[in-house]
Design a protein around this nucleic acid. Sequence first.
DNA 1: GAAGTGATGTTTTTT
DNA 2: ACATCACTTC
Length: 776
Amino acid sequence: MSENQNTIPTYLNQLNDIQRKAVTETEGPVLVVAGPGSGKTRVLTFRIAHLIQKGVAPWDILALTFTNKAAREMKERIEKVVGPRANRVWAGTFHSIFARILRVEAEKIGYPSNFTIYDSDDTKSVISAIIKEMNLNKEHYNTNAIRSRISSAKSNLITPKLYENDPQLMAEDQMAKRPYVQKIYTKYVARCKRAGAMDFDDLLFRLFELLQKHEDVRKKYQERFKYILVDEFQDTNHLQYSIVKKLVNGENKPRNICVVGDDAQSIYAFRGATIQNILDFEKDYKPHGIQVFKLEQNYRSTEHIVKAANEVITHNRNQIQKTIWSDKGSGSQIKVIKTMSDTEEGKRVADTIVEQKTRHHLSNKEIAILYRTNAQSRVFEEYLRRYNIHYKVFGGLSFYQRKEVKDLIAYLRLVINPKDEEALRRVINFPRRGIGKTTIEKISALADAKSMTMWEVMIHVQASTKARNSIAGFKAMIELFQKKAETGNAYEVAIMAAKQSKLVDLLKQDTTIEGINRLENVNALLDGIKEFTEDNTIQVDENSNDKSLTAYLQNIALLTDQDEKSNSEDYVTLMSVHAAKGLEFKSVFVVGMEEQLFPSFMALKSDSPDGLDEERRLFYVAITRAEAFLTLSYAASRYKFGKQQYNEPSRFLDEIDISHLDNNSAYGRSSRAQMGNYGRESKPAAPSRAGVSGNFKRTGTAVTPSLKVDPKTFKPSPSQNIQNGMRVLHMRFGEGKVMAIDGINDKRVATIFFKSLPDDQQKRIMLKFAKLQILN
DNA sequence: GAAGTGATGTTTTTT
DNA sequence: ACATCACTTC
């Protein structure tokens, strides 16, 4: 691997014939169909390295990937071949690269250059607010359903206007008893625009719009990107492909586009990805002399695994013909574990892990448990903990999605873009500063009426003097932060915001385990920001080294927890099959192989074979992650939504020829029908679910404080008599001292320091309701 | 305003 | 089973 820039490119010797062609045929359109483990990433990176070696400027190359991780790996590997020049390649995810371009060009399409990126929570909250305002029936207008409908409209280049004129879409909504989807869509788009915000789909959609409407901009980027490469092409949606086409097809421009993908590994159709893109690509570029290369040798897995995967995938209807093969020897047969319950599945898988570790000397890092849904991780966690096996769960709530982290980020977002309404709503009264729900609704209504932003109108709102004072105070505070942001770096602003907003103070008051955790998360965020400002290796933009708050927010908006830095710890990986795409492990456990679960009930209920095909591709992805050992497991019964369910073993198990299964497994498999009955008839003694989880009881649940005062002797005093400074008695909290009183009449709120509470915790209690006895 | 209660939805996958 | 949300109670 030692590359010397002046010698003949030795990297070409590390490739087989087809791979080498895929690397060296740099001109014109190229489609690389790459089976699992066929060296796809190697081809992509070497192709880029080769271009650079040939004299192409790194910044003339655009490489689009699906995840940040893939982009990072690609850059690292290019760097190994060509050195630090690699960093100047435009390599990143669709979303991050497009966001970068939009930062520069946003004003041309009516957005501020410091636009906010709304994540799916923000999107959801905007849509849900619109549904509420329109007084629509929540039963028919499910926020998630509407969101995905809007998202898929955008992914297919359908604006609200086009939506309205599309009889089929409108009829579908009519049928589903939600005729106002188009209206919601219209409002949603307007709302985002007013807030200077783009959601994930907008990062693509608005870029398309930009290229469409502005010929000069289009030409600029067409000329800029002389070579374009797209990874995981099977997972692109129509919109992404449309943008790529726009960038590639310039006037008098050689169409140097290379896409790499595998139709058999397309697993994101549910969010608009379509393998049609691969088929279209071949058609679209045929006139321009497309070359197609098929990488069919699998360097990852042994033969039983590769052959089983091939057998499974032949059950799908449409696919590009290819024969994946391996010369790594037959290897171990596939093991199938059948169990009575999900808890037993957890135990048996953990047992098998222990056995494999000793017998084959595997380290934890070489082992992965893959499941269809994230909720399945728990049983495995429980047993791995019992056995003292270090593990790590990927997926679920990412760091940046935690409430406390989002709260602080919302302050920062507001500093950069005060139009950002989601950020404003989030923090205008958090920590509480007396700007209640009604006031916020008034601001929102006023903003709507005047077509201005909430930020602009909020000081003019009709409200109590107190509320208006609070609003003015809030505004002044944010403006103070903004001033800081003009001169200070991201960290300085963040520290100031965390402290002066009283966010940290509030968190410090919560002494439960979760509360301490939350405080730690905020501190971790602050540390992260500090690191960002000090670490020169983190760069948002290859051409600048911007340490401003804007730069920071842009950097994190598109991060997911998959992007956590890899560390050297040795752990067993637990993740969803989706998350495992692109990874490989010596030993892989694919668990929960049951009808309704894998394939998912969602795919089965629609009755359309498309859904089932996608599940099968997903299974194909799952089993092809394994290098040497593959274990499949299923349970006769499992808990779902709190109820015990009995499922048949997955049909996918039947699609693997029995010759690839080990002896014990083959026996169990052939009695598939029996197995279903087995669980039902003999009624296995209820697996002691409680027993297992009992050992791992959630800790830290706050216990309701018991009564501190005997109800018989307790005589509450009239609330209007309570004054600042008095010693009072409360039924549950016991003795305390009134530290402050604000509000008038019915709205009087006392801040009381109670002896019984830990540390210097204070409670705010509304006097109208509280029963307090004056002590003296 | 805060805490507790009961009803309701959620779980397929994610940039 | 768990989380969230509207609603009640203090």
